[in-house]
C-alpha cells in the first residue's frame, strides 16, 4: 500500500488532462487521403472556422480549414499558395457556441482546436466524412480584415471609364444623326 499515493496521483492526472491531449493531432489532408486508418479514432486538429455555424436542433455544423490561409487570407494580403482544405465538424450547439468569428472576405475566423471522433462515412449523417467534436478550444480569436484601396487602380479605373464614356457618347451621336 506504500504506492497508493502514486496510483491516486496518476489517476488524478488522467482525469485532469483534457481529452485533447490524448487525441492524435492530424491534418485534414491526411484524413481524406487515409480515411480507413483514422476511422473511429479520436483526433484533434486545428484550423480556422469559416462561414457560419449551422445550428439544427441538438447539432451544429462547422467547417474548419487547416490550410495556408488559416492565419491570413488572400483578402488580408497573403499570397495565393493553393486551394482551401479543411474538415466538416458536427458538435452540440453549446460546444460550438464558443466560436465567435467565422472566416469570410471581411473576417479572419477564430483559429480553433477541435477534438472528436473521425468518421470516414458517418452513418448518422448520410455517409458524410465528418468529425463528431466533443471539445472545441479557441487558439486565436478571429478579427476583421481591413480593406485598403489602391490609388493606382483608381487611376486605371478613371482612365478606362473615360475611354468607355467617350466611345458611348460617340455612338449615341452617330445614331442620333441617322
Amino acid at each position: 500500500m506504500r504506492h497508493r499515493w502514486l496510483i491516486h496521483y496518476l489517476t488524478a492526472i488522467l482525469v485532469a488532462v483534457p481529452s485533447a491531449a490524448l487525441a492524435a493531432p492530424v491534418a485534414s489532408g491526411e484524413l481524406i487521403e487515409h480515411p480507413e486508418a483514422w476511422d473511429g479514432e479520436t483526433i484533434t486538429f486545428t484550423g480556422e472556422a469559416i462561414g457560419e455555424s449551422m445550428v439544427r436542433g441538438s447539432e451544429a455544423w462547422l467547417h474548419v480549414n487547416d490550410d495556408a490561409y488559416a492565419d491570413a487570407s488572400i483578402a488580408s494580403g497573403a499570397a495565393p499558395v493553393g486551394y482551401n482544405s479543411g474538415h466538416a465538424v458536427v458538435a452540440p450547439p453549446e460546444i460550438a457556441e464558443v466560436v465567435r468569428v467565422f472566416g469570410d472576405h471581411r473576417h479572419q475566423g477564430d483559429l480553433i482546436e477541435v477534438t472528436g471522433v473521425f468518421n470516414a462515412a458517418c452513418s448518422q449523417h448520410g455517409g458524410d466524412m465528418d468529425v463528431h467534436a466533443h471539445a472545441i478550444r479557441i487558439v486565436r480569436p478571429g478579427a476583421e480584415t481591413p480593406e485598403t484601396l489602391d490609388r493606382g487602380r483608381l487611376i486605371a479605373l478613371a482612365l478606362v471609364a473615360l475611354g468607355a464614356a467617350v466611345l458611348a457618347g460617340r455612338l449615341v451621336l452617330v445614331r442620333a444623326r441617322r
Binding site: 469559416i50 480549414n65 490561409y69 483578402a75 497573403a78 495565393p80 482551401n84 469570410d104 472576405h105
Partner: peptide, 9 residues
C-alpha cells in the same frame, strides 16, 4: 481560384 472561402461576395 485560391482561398475561395475568403473571396468577396
Amino acid at each position: 481560384i485560391q482561398d475561395l472561402d475568403h473571396i468577396s461576395n
